[in-house]
Amino acid sequence: MYETFEHTADLGLRIQADSLERLFQEAAEALFSLLVVNLHQVQPILPENLRLQAPDREDLLHDWLSELLVLFALRKLVGRRFEVRLSHQTLPVAGPPEAISALMGQPIELKQEVLEATIWGEILDPARHQLGPEVKAVTYHGLRLEKQPTSWLAEVILDL
């Protein structure tokens, strides 16, 4: 379930779902239903696989929506159906010395949230698909993802 909420310059998405995977799927659908007004006429025929990892779930949600936005911008792929699998991964710390020293005092391994997804959709066809407003980006402003007593809730503000 998702709805939009008010933000003066931009647009907020509020998503609620009974599982975290479902929440990520709903968020993707919310985004594409903004980008393409008649999303129900988009056929889930082309599969696209995606794998992402991020330090926490909020970042993962941000990155997921950002990646979908880039798929739409660069490849004109309109997502209609989304299969999402979430897991964790523990990585040993590697990288430039300053990144490691920034983590001084913490265990030298990084827990990462991992998303693997298949997006089913089709390539944008301006003759059949009615475009909505341009979404410039997914912001971190007011980004929320939290477990409620019986469901998951997220809020994301998009820059339009």
Partner: peptide, 8 residues
């Protein structure tokens, strides 16, 4: 400067 959100 906007006074109404895009939604509104």
């Amino acid at each position: 400067g906007r006074v109404l959100s895009r939604h509104a």
